[in-house]
Design a binder for these strands. Structure first.
Lengths: 167, 167
DNA sequence: ATAAACTTTCATTTTTTATTGAAAGTTCAA
DNA sequence: TTGAACTTTCAATAAAAAATGAAAGTTTAT
């Protein structure tokens, strides 16, 4: 396979994977492109390479920066801005976990706590509801804490985890 | 809060969370409904409660059964079918991990391996591409193996994991 | 073998989500 | 302070995904 084809295939695949995980395709593609670029890329070049509009590029770059996984870079004597991706995979995983926890898991926990706290009439139906949502709350909370702990390891948590869990 | 409202809020929240994770809203809602129902529910009742069409209900129930997290149940003397959800959360997590691994991670690994194996001309650009995709392959493979190992614990893996990791 | 009772399929429609691109905004050098 | 060089915004449009519902299919009791 040619380098150009390989690069393209990687970007497409990463984009598709993103969609399946609730991240928009272009955002994932831009990230993929930056991940495999050995130097910072201008917005113009991103537009060109992914065949997307200026607005689209701008909005998704902004989103990626909000996630903390893409950075702006300034080059001496250049007016325009260049972009690079977080390339350290441990760091990337940590940032993604933290963001998803903050944006999705935490709000879900709030709701779970709320709905599991209704004062039940103790019909079997209501008892089961309270029981099940309480269990779910505990489970999600625990899972979220694991994620949180993992991010404390930061460097190489995954390798360490593998060692522990596979022992 | 009233039971009815709590139930509804739970279903809506679960549905929204599903969308954010690339699972369609109705599918997540049906699952939520079945999770908190103390007994099996007919398709008719699912349609009624979620205000969805027969076709939609049928297709999403089928998908949930393909995922192995919803089961058909037959009641003596009843022609129609009833549905229940997997309510054991450890089991649920295991099944979801396995499916997502099979459907998404494995194919992605295949592509990563492929694109990281191009015979590089050794331009800095190509070297960086090969290097980065190789790292990504290793990382994803490791993460997938962790998931896989976790499913072997099956019961209570999460609790055990918490103990290990937080020690 | 038939028909009632039910479920599934899939072409069409609706809804949701993402993209475009022109206009507005910003920054910087002179 | 102006204007060239760039970026961001957002209403309009396009694309993608999900839902509908009528027709086709299946199962079961008789």
């Amino acid at each position: 396979m040619e380098f150009k084809d390989a690069k393209n295939k990687f970007i497409q695949t990463w984009g598709a994977l993103g969609s399946q995980w609730g991240i928009n395709k272009t955002m994932a593609q831009i990230h993929a492109l930056l991940m495999v670029s050995h130097e910072a890329v201008s917005m113009e070049d991103i537009m060109e390479e992914l065949q997307i509009s200026r607005g689209n590029a701008s909005m998704n770059l902004r989103a990626l920066m909000d996630w903390g996984i893409v950075y702006k870079e300034y080059k001496a004597g250049e007016r325009r801005e260049f972009f690079t991706a977080e390339k350290d995979l441990d760091e990337l995983a940590v940032k993604i976990s933290r963001e998803r926890s903050k944006r999705e898991i935490k709000p879900a926990l709030k709701v779970l706590k709320e709905v599991s706290s209704i004062t039940s009439d103790n019909t079997p139906e209501e008892k089961h509801f309270v029981d099940q949502t309480t269990k779910l709350y505990d489970f999600v909370l625990k899972a979220d804490n694991v994620l949180d702990k993992m991010t404390e390891y930061k460097d190489n948590w995954l390798a360490k985890l593998v060692v522990k869990i596979m022992k």
